[in-house]
Design a binder for these strands. Structure first.
Lengths: 106, 106
DNA sequence: TATATTTGCAACCAATCGGTTTCATACTCC
DNA sequence: GGAGTATGAAACCGATTGGTTGCAAATATA
């Protein structure tokens, strides 16, 4: 099973879940109210997000509140960073940037 | 068919292709040499990357050189940016950040 | 205790995915 | 023109995905 963070954010429903719980912790039932799917489907998405440690749970009575582990999104930012200099740099500096990137990825 | 950029980068082989053609334009055959799959499989990945405009082609004789459209990766960076302030901000400022984020996503 | 609520998990299903094999097309070189 | 090379497209296949329904466990409430 491929359960990396890139796979996790590939699904639009999961990105919507991420957007919701970034604002405040929510229960599976409360989350499911925002989608046209069943609660169980949302639960399966939460399982995927949990398995790649993108969310954390806090149990309060019989309710489980899911919230976003924002720090985990840095992994994507880190992956992006190697290309970011490519689009942020002017053409005249492109050669040196390419050399740097080549050095970082032998 | 879900052909957005998040789906495109979800596959590890496609991310490897992106890393390769970020350095220099490459033909499908040259790309396939770097993987333990067939050229046709690489070609299918290139089709996905093309359909979401992550790569561009340049035909030279019977060879087609694929290169990365780095600017397209900004879409992911833009998606990340709404969460970036969450992990870059200290806890004491968190409330105002959440308010801002809530305003951006009504 | 009995009932209702919240949740996770298993079984199943159609659709999609990544891969292969095969074939057709287009270009290069002799 | 003919042989070889580079490529894309189609057909097929097993595995995975996202979804559903049904059920069991745990908690709250009467």
């Amino acid at each position: 099973m491929r359960r990396d963070i890139f796979h996790a954010i590939a699904d639009p429903t999961r990105r919507a879940i991420i957007a919701l719980i970034a604002l405040q912790a929510m229960t599976p039932n409360a989350l499911a109210d925002n989608f046209q799917t069943t609660r169980q489907a949302v639960s399966k998405h939460l399982r995927v997000l949990t398995e790649c440690e993108l969310v954390q749970q806090e149990q309060l009575g019989r309710e489980i509140y899911y919230s976003l582990r924002v720090d985990r999104l840095q992994e994507i930012d880190h992956w992006l960073s190697q290309y970011k200099q490519l689009w942020e740099t002017r053409f005249t500096q492109l050669d040196s940037v390419l050399a740097t990137l080549k050095h970082q990825n032998p």
